[in-house]
């Protein structure tokens, strides 16, 4: 690894080498062993990270009373939704129900069709039906 690459990685990923991808970490450690310039870059990056982490966390303490106000939310607001709303189906359950219904309808259709009381072979001629002959024939003496 070259010094410029190491500097770029420090800027992108921060100075915590354990958070870097393994191959880059190994390269960085090898470079740190032999390059004084890399060691100085690393020291500065560590320092900056340390300041940022600690200074910022210490600089923004919670305002007085905020914790208590948030802690009082359960006392002021109604309990979370489920206690009031009751059971509601999830989208997955709805899809599953739709699937089962479709399969059931197919089965019913199949059984009705297979067990039909009408004898298709002995049934009326479709062309005759279309012209109303059967109906007329049935009505006429």
């Amino acid at each position: 690894m070259k010094l410029t690459q190491f500097q770029q990685l420090l800027e992108r990923k921060g100075s915590e080498l354990s958070a870097w991808p393994v191959w880059q970490r190994h390269g960085a450690r090898r470079l740190l062993r032999r390059s004084v310039a890399a060691q100085e870059c690393y020291r500065q990056a560590r320092q900056l990270d340390h300041w940022l982490t600690h200074s910022l966390r210490e600089s923004a303490p919670l305002p007085a009373g905020l914790r208590e106000r948030i802690g009082a939310i359960p006392l002021q607001m109604p309990p979370p939704a489920p206690a009031r709303r009751g059971w509601q189906p999830t989208p997955r359950l709805l899809w599953e129900l739709a699937g089962v219904t479709a399969v059931l309808l197919l089965c019913i259709g199949f059984f009705v069709g297979a067990g039909s009381p009408f004898d298709v072979a002995a049934g009326p001629d479709l062309a005759s039906l279309a012209y109303g002959e059967i109906l007329l024939g049935g009505l006429l003496p």
Binding site: L56, R57, L62, I70, G71, P74, L75, P79, P80, A83
Partner: peptide, 26 residues
């Protein structure tokens, strides 16, 4: 537990995350 209306669980979750939520908003 919060979903079941448990206040103590809400207090624990708040304690755990409030600092960071506040700082991000700030």
């Amino acid at each position: 537990r919060i979903g079941a209306g448990e206040r103590q669980a809400f207090a624990v979750l708040t304690e755990r995350h409030l600092d960071r939520v506040y700082r991000l908003a700030l």
